[in-house]
Design a protein around this nucleic acid. Sequence first.
DNA 1: CACTATAAATTTACACTGTAAAATAATTGT
DNA 2: ACAATTATTTTACAGTGTAAATTTATAGTG
Lengths: 211, 211
Amino acid sequence: MPRVLSDSDVTDFRDRACAVAARLFAAKGVEGVTMRELASALGVSAMTPYRYFRDKDDILAAVRARAFERFAEKLETAYAGPGTVVERAHAKGDAYVRFALEEPATYRLMFDLSQPTEEQYPDLVRAMTRARATMTSHVRDLVAEGIISGDPELIGHVFWAMLHGAVTLQLAGKLSAQYKQSPQYGIDQILAEAGRALGEGFRAGVPKRRE
Amino acid sequence: MPRVLSDSDVTDFRDRACAVAARLFAAKGVEGVTMRELASALGVSAMTPYRYFRDKDDILAAVRARAFERFAEKLETAYAGPGTVVERAHAKGDAYVRFALEEPATYRLMFDLSQPTEEQYPDLVRAMTRARATMTSHVRDLVAEGIISGDPELIGHVFWAMLHGAVTLQLAGKLSAQYKQSPQYGIDQILAEAGRALGEGFRAGVPKRRE
DNA sequence: CACTATAAATTTACACTGTAAAATAATTGT
DNA sequence: ACAATTATTTTACAGTGTAAATTTATAGTG
């Protein structure tokens, strides 16, 4: 099998490895997947992935970068749909939640409280920057249309934090009704009410109380 | 050293082990601490902890339960302070954020997207239930005083999700200005604006638009 | 008091991890 | 046809969680 590798060979292997790794991670969690397992799933020997990735962290960073790209695409697609700005913003929020709940392991991987080694991976930084911009960009339109008022960047981060918080509480099992004692609320109700309240709070024309 | 262990001996060892483990976890992360290391820090042999805990997960659950208790106490203390209901609610929120940012590893441990093995640990379930109730209980007072209106349970969860989202984005490095391009916002600004908007959106007397 | 049953603690052992280093095998330019 | 190069595999190792065997010290009995 050995022959001189072209750049595209390297890229191909990395892509294939990332796809397989992402699938394994989603199925068994990041820590539950071993390098030997990944290598075997790729049909190569245990050490071969090390020719294409520095170490396990390197694979992880590559998988994360691809996940951010995919995530950004889903949000953009959702926002590009039909309807008013408000409806499309809603669709974007729905897409956010759907992605997180359908691929919890992926979402976790993306937003895991992480090592300070992130900036060593330029692709990851690029993907994260894109995704970040995507997540809040629609707020600009809402402000431009006079539906809400304020700094779009700041408001975008507020909505983002809200979505992220609800989603991660859900994924951590903190919202599940398993330990219920009083009427319990699911993530849908929480986000509906949060969206309503935030829309109200940011509505154009409402004077801001206390700085 | 061997002699018959009393119940309090067992409890003492478990407490001591949890304290040491919590310190190690906070310093080096959960995965970065080995059982041998913990045993050595306790001054016992590598296998001794296994007489008091089923396995590493068991220790983790015990540490988490204690962390939830401590967290709940901090929130309660903050809310028990002087001032109006609104000021005390604010103090509670501040205490929440302070805890999370001062002990990121602990907060992470508590809210880590987790295995479905949680309900096997009754102490942990109890502690989580207490903490959950603590986190949103003050909303009842806000409603009772006519400052906001709505279902306290639901509103409490909205505020909780907001705090949790902002805190975890911060801890994940997603809010840091390292990749900045436009005026960047920190967690303080985001939470201040979010609090203002939510207070507005839940203010008593404001009619709710669309169901 | 010895002496033994018992239970705490340690030692040893094992399968598995990430990955470094050595050995092998296949391709390419001469 | 051969030598240099390089992809790949094999072997090896330190470190992990923890099961099993072994040691050690106590407590209850005669």
